[in-house]
Design a protein around this nucleic acid. Structure first.
Lengths: 402, 402
DNA sequence: GTATTTTGTTCAGCGTCGGCACAAAGTCAG
DNA sequence: CTGACTTTGTGCCGACGCTGAACAAAATAC
């Protein structure tokens, strides 16, 4: 409680994202003196958040005294991360560094009443907490819908049969209280809720293929429709009311299918798994298995000319949409998830060529397009959102006394 | 040089934008004690940047001791602001608060060699500086082209006959040195260059219709093509390489005109003055007078059914483009400039209805759409960009000794 | 004219960080 | 194996920048 209180948050974030493996690097990254960095590390260790290994692993080739290694505390506090998708839910405890400590998947048909499934996923998370006995510092929930801020309501839970405007954050917070999940000192825990693609983008930025990007654009499709997200200088850009990056209604096929938005040829209906299966000339299965059906087609039947043509068609449409987004947002990296990831991996050159051709500047055209790398990215992202208050100011969350 | 050095920049910005008319308000806005706010104000006054009037104007109805009024120093330092457009240039000296101190317009055909006109506009500005004898702290240049960062090159100076990739920032800085324009202590001055719509958006955010917005979207059209800009939390978002908000190639008319980008029906060719004049069934005049021709048509011949139909057609196309941008960016305010401003004022309800109808969420649909209010917004914006280093850290620019 | 309210100023105190000196722990050269 | 060198960790002091409290000033309210 003497030195380095102002830099506590940034320092924790550096260790959390693995960008400060040693005290020396921490010193350089924070731009402070060794004395301050040392005090900061000591404080974070005292708070039980990080670990300092005096015994260095292997100082390969470097002269001088070896650095102490900084790492996330292996038995430190966790956050409760929850995810709801069309065919079930998933709850995890996630520590710093994006490390999943325990997981409880659950499959079911999602009930029309959001509070039921939120209670179920929270109960699963509470069970994990009891089982492991870890301290819980926050809770995050990912839902397949835009979440309006500051209300915390799910505006378009399309593939869930929920009513539009369901107050998911409020339900989540109430559910946490009912399940007895509390924060430090038994205080009630305020849950955070967000769109699954947004949260996945945040997770990729911190721990996945988005590390080191300044402006990260993420586009993904799960079962139906297309979602987008943008991370600007490390912060999720969700717009003035949480509704940014609703990219599904960019026009990518002027002569295309009518969309429920009133226009034709929107990305939502032209570049999602249903569009792919249809373009490949196959009979679409049930909605929740469309992504798997598409994956199977690409991986097992790519030799089929119909499948191949469908891949190329969807790449062209997706590329048009991405080019539009690149022109507007000028990101320095683009990540693709869900079916879009499969399309990228099936023919990376074609997609990159379309984007380069249609985004005006050769420079932006050469923006790297990569695949998302995290499993359950939106779950990790929900955890990241829950960690955010701790990363912003550890002392405010943990209290000076504890 | 004792108290309040950290809060110096934020305090200056508050006075600069008129959000801190008194010491008491400054105290509240900065979230510091009266002692600190007083010291900060004293320091800024000592630096010659602001003025403290002990004699209050008229404390209407309020109890207690009247506040001292804070205002921008009337004879304080200025920055050199320059703007180049299709039919000439304009140079001004602009003080804090966006106050234009002196102006030198110049009309000519813009030469194909950018350095000639940049030298001319800088010479005009240098003349103003000699004439007024004011200290100059920075210089900014607005050009009708995307400016790539960090190179400072004009990538698509479409209506100028410049080569693509002209190094405008470098030319500007060299020209300043040649003209003998120097910063504090005779140090060489680093010029900043930016896209005119971007800079106009910044000016509107600070001093115009954008004041108080969190996420401000600005769309404007001058003679040809459509430009956009985004201000996020007070900072211009120009993307990872300065190329963001190139909004001209959103598709707004699937069956529309071919565009040089290879697509059809782009905003650039469907919602600019040429498109309007053509849609109204008139013979387009020379490129540099298209905006004026459009204005005249709307203001004088709105009764003509052809003109009216053209207004409605362009409103519908513009609305489609704006709706797409609102879905992606979720701003809390939209400003329109150039011909788009005229369209808004001709039929505000129609434009708002189109945007509300096509942007998915009723809430975003009700985003306020307003007209730009500043004359020569991009010139003021060039000045704002030039002021930025002073607003960020006044002491670093002015030096502790002076 | 006195009380109240609000604002500006002075001064002491303290927390936080930089700078420096020194100790510690390794590599490298002979 | 020893000594020089390099790099990292730590303790101490001072400076800087802010808070808090007391006090003074300038208006309104009664």
């Amino acid at each position: 409680m003497e030195r380095g209180r102002g830099a506590l948050g940034p320092a924790l974030e550096l260790v959390h994202t693995g960008r400060a493996p040693t005290r020396a690097v921490l010193t350089a990254e924070l731009g402070v003196t060794r004395a301050t960095a040392g005090a900061v590390a000591a404080e974070l260790e005292a708070l039980g958040l990080i670990q300092v290994d005096a015994r260095p692993a292997a100082a390969a080739g470097s002269q001088g005294r070896p650095s102490h290694r900084l790492s996330v505390a292996p038995n430190g506090p966790v956050v409760l991360a929850a995810q709801i998708h069309a065919d079930g839910f998933r709850a995890s405890l996630v520590g710093l560094g994006g490390r999943t400590v325990a997981t409880a998947p659950g499959c079911m048909t999602v009930p029309a009443d959001p509070s039921h499934i939120i209670d179920a996923v929270v109960a699963a998370g509470a069970g994990l907490l009891r089982g492991t006995g870890r301290r819980c510092l926050g809770a995050g929930l990912a839902v397949p819908s835009a979440v309006a801020e500051p209300e915390g309501t799910a505006l378009n839970p399309l593939h869930l049969s929920w009513p539009a405007g369901a107050p998911v954050r409020e339900l989540f917070t109430e559910s946490l209280a009912k399940a007895g999940v509390t924060g430090p000192g038994g205080a009630p825990l305020a849950g955070v809720a967000g769109n699954d693609v947004n949260l996945a983008a945040l997770a990729e930025y911190r721990h996945g293929a988005g590390r080191g990007a300044r402006h990260l654009l993420c586009v993904a499709t799960g079962h139906r429709g297309v979602g987008g997200a943008l991370v600007l200088d490390g912060r999720l850009h969700s717009g003035s009311s949480g509704l940014a990056l609703e990219v599904g209604h960019l026009t990518v096929n002027p002569a295309g299918l009518p969309c429920h938005c009133g226009s034709r040829g929107c990305l939502d209906v032209e570049a999602d798994p249903l569009a792919f299966v249809t373009a490949a000339g196959r009979e679409p299965g049930p909605a929740v298995s469309l992504l798997q059906q598409s994956r199977d087609l690409i991986r097992s039947e790519y030799a089929d000319p119909g499948v191949r043509a469908a891949v190329e068609l969807l790449i062209d449409r997706l590329g048009l949409g991405l080019a539009g987004l690149v022109n507007i947002l000028n990101p320095d990296r683009v990540l693709l998830g869900g079916l879009h990831r499969e399309l990228l991996e099936a023919d990376p050159e074609r997609l990159r060529a379309v984007v380069a051709d249609r985004s005006l500047w050769g420079r932006s055209g050469s923006v790297p397009i990569l695949a998302c790398t995290l499993d359950h990215g939106s779950l990790i992202g929900a955890a990241e959102a829950a960690w955010q208050p701790v990363l912003d100011d550890p002392l405010a969350v943990l209290g000076c006394g504890s």
